[in-house]
Design a binder for these strands. Structure first.
Length: 581
RNA sequence: GCGGGAGUAGCUCAGCUGGAUAGAGCAACGGCCUUCUAAGCCGUAGGUCCUGGGUUCGAAUCCCAGCUCCCGUGCCA
């Protein structure tokens, strides 16, 4: 990130350069620049207080000493308040100077670009084949996509991998059910994946009540794993059918992957994992299974990480290790981000510990590993939505309902709009609403599924942000004259709302940094919402179409920059915008 | 049992890792459309930040104890 882009860095640098010249300050001073309450200023430095405590000084005196020594600047005014806060109020000229250069996406992207770009692999969505996606799958897909876009926007090289659950014991039962029922996979009706799910349920019931059926299902699994051509062909077809149904949802969501190397992709690579772990003495045999213990860890010293079941089969620990190896070896990943449910935290902690030892033993550099976990979507009973009992809402149905509700509003507000255009707007608004509803909440929190929560279109929602963008577009449509030549004449912000909006704009880098640091999109959502409220307030108080060309120039510039930041931020969230709503 | 997450306005949630008088949205109430899109703006009301201690200039945030809910804890992922 460009160092002038983030004002906190500019102020921090100024304070540090000054404090270094002062006798009493020492070299351990941390300015702690934060955004300030608007009534105090734009930024504040809190660092003098703890610093004074540490050095047994008087904080107010030390703050005074520091501020007095600070070279006078045309860019900001300083003041000292309370026990020793240093407040900075940026000058109007500085605000204008900061905002003016961001004429387009390119200039913004260049300011954001990381000095140290790396290769990141994002592992997200990851549904199970032969099953429909339901609301429980929405979080990984949406959060993962958003983080992929964020990393890419910050200049990193991103590989998106859909780690499908396409291999495992369930296929024995499913193949058995298909053969017993004599089903044709090419004639499963309108909703083939629902049909597959149904077949699995039947198969499951049969194997539970009948020993013979269970044995046959196991036989099917062995056959599949042994590469039996007929079984393999069925399995392939199941994968295709599933991918088609997933793809319809991904298309609607605007999600795309570079790869979909599911678990099956690694089925021939797991033996190498056992061999290597055994050779290095990382795993051991225990109760017939191969397990990894971590004696140095208080919990995982006793709680094993199973890498091979006692029947000799691999499990997800094995494939995850093989997958990580592949991503490191073949894709040269510097970072791997896993976006999954929080209930898998133990698994990933053990995976990371094991991988650390394994890579070290193999003398390989371990990529930086991040488990980006999220809370569970709960049913009305406060329990996790389960596929088994009670049908969870299908993801396709949720999205369809979102579009339907948005269409009602679009038609109400634009009577006579062409149906195709109304449909297009409804899709962008409805899907945006669903995505934003999920992304705007801290991902680690559970929430209870609610149509009204996910499909809200008023207040802190995607449509509100999209609406701000649409209103700005409308201004530029109606403008007579050349916007760029008007903007060149812009005077500095003066009115309360001009200043307030400009101030919101300069916080953009902070929001990006915070979101990136924590890999939590809700920080960006909060920022964009505040930017949009700042704009709405400005819009209602200060008319853009005014006679004074310098005043109009500034207001147009504020509109243009707000639009760019909102569009860019929404694009990172995976939310489309509209010229007209 | 052990480990983890959560508890903030009637409801849903923020609160930038210890800062100034705790903020939004929804719901409620009252204003604002012959003026750039009212999916909006302005205002009013609403709080023992689960409870009790502690640490200090200063705590929703940190430490201890307790209460409630949720999750994980060897062959699912």
């Amino acid at each position: 990130m460009n160092s002038d882009f983030d004002c906190t860095r500019v102020l921090e640098k100024a304070l540090l350069e000054t404090s270094a010249t002062l006798d009493g300050f020492g070299d351990d001073f941390a300015p702690q620049i934060r955004t300030a309450d608007e009534k105090f200023g734009d930024f504040q430095a809190n660092g003098v207080l703890p610093h004074a405590k540490k050095h047994r000084g008087n904080p107010r005196e030390m703050a005074t000493q520091l501020v007095d020594a600070l070279p006078s600047s045309q860019h900001w005014e300083t003041s000292i308040a309370g026990p020793g806060f240093i407040n900075f109020r940026l000058s109007s000229d500085y605000l204008l100077g900061w905002i003016a250069p961001f004429e387009d996406r390119e200039k913004l992207a260049r300011a954001v670009a990381s000095e140290n770009p790396f290769k990141a692999v994002l592992d997200y969505s990851s549904p199970n084949t032969a099953k429909q996606m339901h609301v429980g799958h929405i979080r990984s897909t949406i959060i993962g996509e958003s983080l992929a876009r964020l990393l890419a926007f910050c200049g990193h090289e991103v590989t998106r991998d859909n780690h499908l659950g396409d291999w495992g014991t369930q296929f024995g039962i499913l193949l058995y059910a298909i053969k017993r029922q004599g089903s044709s996979l090419d004639d499963l009706g309108d909703d083939p994946v629902a049909e597959l799910e149904d077949l699995y349920r039947k198969g499951n019931a049969w194997t539970k009540e009948d020993e013979g059926a269970l044995a046959e299902a196991r036989g099917e699994l062995v056959g599949l794993q042994g590469g039996d051509p007929e079984s393999m062909a069925l399995w392939e077809r199941i994968r295709e059918i599933s991918m088609e149904s997933f793809q319809a949802i991904y298309d609607l969501l605007g999600v795309r992957f570079d790869h979909a190397h599911g678990e099956s992709f690694y089925r021939d690579r797991v033996d190498q994992v056992y061999d290597s772990l055994l050779r290095h003495g990382i795993c051991e045999e225990n109760e017939g299974a191969l397990v990894v213990f971590h004696p140095e860890h208080k919990r995982f010293a006793k709680q094993p990480f199973l890498v091979r079941k006692k029947d000799g089969a691999s499990n997800y620990a094995t494939t995850d290790l093989a997958t990580l190896w592949f991503r490191s070896e073949e894709w040269a990943a510097d970072q791997v981000v896993y976006v999954t449910d929080g209930r898998q935290r133990d698994h990933f902690e053990q995976l990371f510990l094991t991988a650390g030892k394994w890579f070290a033993a193999e003398d390989k550099t371990l990529p930086e590993l991040s488990h980006v976990w999220f809370g569970t979507i709960l049913g009305e009973d406060n329990k996790a939505i389960k596929t088994r009992d009670g049908q969870p809402v299908k993801l396709a149905d949720l999205l369809a309902e979102a579009v339907r509700r948005a269409l009602v509003m679009v038609e109400e507000k634009n009577p006579g709009l062409e149906p195709a255009e109304a449909q297009r707007r409804a899709r962008i608004i409805g899907i945006g609403a669903v995505k934003y509803a999920d992304l705007s909440q801290d991902r680690t929190l559970d929430y209870v599924f609610s149509w009204d929560k996910l499909l809200a279109m008023q207040g802190n929602t995607a449509p509100y942000l999209q609406y701000a963008v649409a209103r700005i577009s409308s201004i530029f449509r109606k403008l007579e004259g050349d916007p760029s030549s008007l903007m060149e004449q812009a005077r500095p912000p003066e009115t309360e709302h001009e200043r307030s909006l400009a101030r919101k704009l300069i916080f953009f880098p902070l929001a990006i940094e915070q979101t990136l640091r924590e890999l939590k999109p809700h920080f960006l959502c909060t920022y964009l919402y505040e930017l949009a409220t700042g704009f709405s307030s400005f819009y209602n108080h200060d008319k853009v179409m005014v006679d004074d060309s310098r005043e109009q120039g500034l207001r147009l510039m504020l509109c243009a920059r707000t639009k760019l930041f909102l569009e860019t931020g929404l694009e990172i969230l995976g939310i489309e915008t509209l010229e007209e709503m």
